[in-house]
Design a protein around this nucleic acid. Sequence first.
DNA 1: GTATGTCGAACGAACGTTCGTTCTAATTCA
DNA 2: TGAATTAGAACGAACGTTCGTTCGACATAC
Lengths: 237, 237
Amino acid sequence: MNTTIGTEMVQIESKRTFDQPPAAAQTAPNEGRGDFDARLNRILNAATAVIARVGYEKASMRMVAKEAGVSLAGIYHYFDSKEKMLFLIQFRSFNALLNGLREKLHHVADPVEQLRLMVRSHTNYFVANMAALKVCSHELDSLSGDAYAETLAIRRQYYDLTRGIIDRVFEKYAPNSPADRHVATMCLFGALNWLYRWYDPKRGRSPNVLANQIATQFLQGILGVSPPEEPSPPPPA
Amino acid sequence: MNTTIGTEMVQIESKRTFDQPPAAAQTAPNEGRGDFDARLNRILNAATAVIARVGYEKASMRMVAKEAGVSLAGIYHYFDSKEKMLFLIQFRSFNALLNGLREKLHHVADPVEQLRLMVRSHTNYFVANMAALKVCSHELDSLSGDAYAETLAIRRQYYDLTRGIIDRVFEKYAPNSPADRHVATMCLFGALNWLYRWYDPKRGRSPNVLANQIATQFLQGILGVSPPEEPSPPPPA
DNA sequence: GTATGTCGAACGAACGTTCGTTCTAATTCA
DNA sequence: TGAATTAGAACGAACGTTCGTTCGACATAC
């Protein structure tokens, strides 16, 4: 099915199949789908909140049903299983994260600025979707089989995208650094993925200040000197 | 009860109470305790392995019993409950980590060297006790009530110890840095606690090289320049 | 216009399984 | 013998999932 995530469309499998062209499926061609999607999103959001609160294993389908205001059996009209439900949550988030970053990177060429962008993008998405990103960070191994492989593939793309930026930063500004690029990348992911354990946007520094410090620390850490500061307003958009 | 962890002794509560002096507790004064402790450790190690493998909620007491080669009911002679068992695992690890670091810090005065020591100590403990530290990093919220509060208190001590080092690094080498000390500290913990997700000592760089890179990146990150390198061999032990 | 048929959506109830924990009786060891 | 410790059966509770049914909106037939 086509589900809107942020601004991009991604293919997501749900229970509904579209082997037949959906032309004459409904009299009101969009109203039926709207109902379906609205309810799907409501359940997914409820599930995300519950899983973020108590963890995947402790989160029961009954809790999700209560939080979503839906019957227990009603949930199974949208997912085959609890595991597929978790898969959808993670898949949607990782896709949004990945596609959002890809799009933004087109407007920036310098690798240092790209890395700042990556950190800012990740932090902002985290602040806007705390529960979802907590589920993504904490329940990485709760899937198995094909579902796990599929999320792993997306995470791998996100890693490769970030790793490429870091490689270019090294190449351009510290080509002779002995630092292991993989270790450096995972340190950055560690700092970012650990956010869900401690960062509260309502109590701490603003997301932008936080992102700036993380990015600056990381860049100084691998380059050994203060990297060029953010150039005053970017060239005409 | 007194249980040996690494080289230090820590107070740990288990099922056995010592309201009575343990003098005449057993005919063989040390052999009985040895049996008890050996079996306790065997069960704890088995539980650590199982929980690290499948997670706390999915880890059943039956799995632990099988892994330890003990009957299901037999486990409950050593713990009141599954939660107390997890508590003991975390409590022992955090205590070992904390006391190990405290002891080592006595031999070093410069805060930069102290921080390198902290990273090396943490990394080495991780490599030597991968399953335990995975359980400590991943199951932080699986406890509740008093057990949670108690582990939180130890973690707080570990944070304070590290935070103090970082504060002194700033004070001595970059007193005017606008960086938030708390954010800096949590970035370091993020990089360290994320290790269990990706680092395999058998496949990647050696623990010492890894620790060096993490420490150097962090120090450069907050100081903006390469910090003084490790002084050649330490003074006579 | 009304009755009939169809289909997806949603429901409460129940299924079989597994969980943490407890009970009881047998066994072990000094 | 007697105290300590075991294994295995059994408990109630909670789990994910399925079942048979009902509801309501729309299409068709008369």
